[in-house]
Amino acid sequence: MKEKTKSKFFLSKKIDKVFIKLNDIWLFVFRFFKEVFVPPYEFKEIVNQCFELGVRSLPLISLTGFIIGIVFTNQSRPSLESFGATSWLPALMSIAIIRAMAPLVTALIASGRVASKIGAEIGSMKVSEQIEALEVSAINPFKYLVVSRIVATTLMVPALTLYTALVALLGAFVNVYQFEGTSFTSFFVQVFEAITFLDVFSSVIKSFIFGFTIGVVGCYKGYTSSRGTEGVGKAANTSVVTAMFLIFIEELLSLQIINALRIVD
């Protein structure tokens, strides 16, 4: 295989670069789907990564989710109070948390904590020849490092989203109980009455997509990093920025699709 580059560009140097990059990302994602279903499966590493990326995120997610539940309930109260409708708070918070806040907040926290970790970890392995060391030991580094991490984030972000929703609702309950004296049972009866199957289902599906995005971005940035320690820092940084950017775009697109489904429903 010749590794020679052409001296002339198809459109211009910058535009060509964008298309080459997009093609690289597409090939990276394609390779993931090609390898994920083919044995040997890296079950042990997937479980390790689920623990590292998922379980270790629990303290941060718990704190953030609980505080968001309290703060949003508190901030929503004055608007409802002016209509004498504070009894709608449980339903309002339920819809807000399950439809939007839980998936989005979880994905953003995961982008900050997980995408940067994956980008830096794989990036440093790349520049210190550890990926080549895996390769010469007859271990497929793509499957061992990339597939396992993408699978882990794809599985763990939806799980964390459901957990965030639960913790945020508990935060909301604490606030509602403090001001309105609503009982635990009454609060959660109203919560579950307000949401539909589509709300929960769309949130979970969205979270799968967010998790996949976080995994792909972190792994791609790390796996393609270069230029020594500077490249590692860049991989960690751009992993977070790119993952967050893509998550907002995906959120916007999924909102349109889910609204369209609601109208059909």
Partner: peptide
Amino acid sequence: LDRLRLKIGFSFQNSALYDS
């Protein structure tokens, strides 16, 4: 190639030990 690699030991310049 993977089968053959098991018969080849590669000692890297920077050792390339798995940090974790």
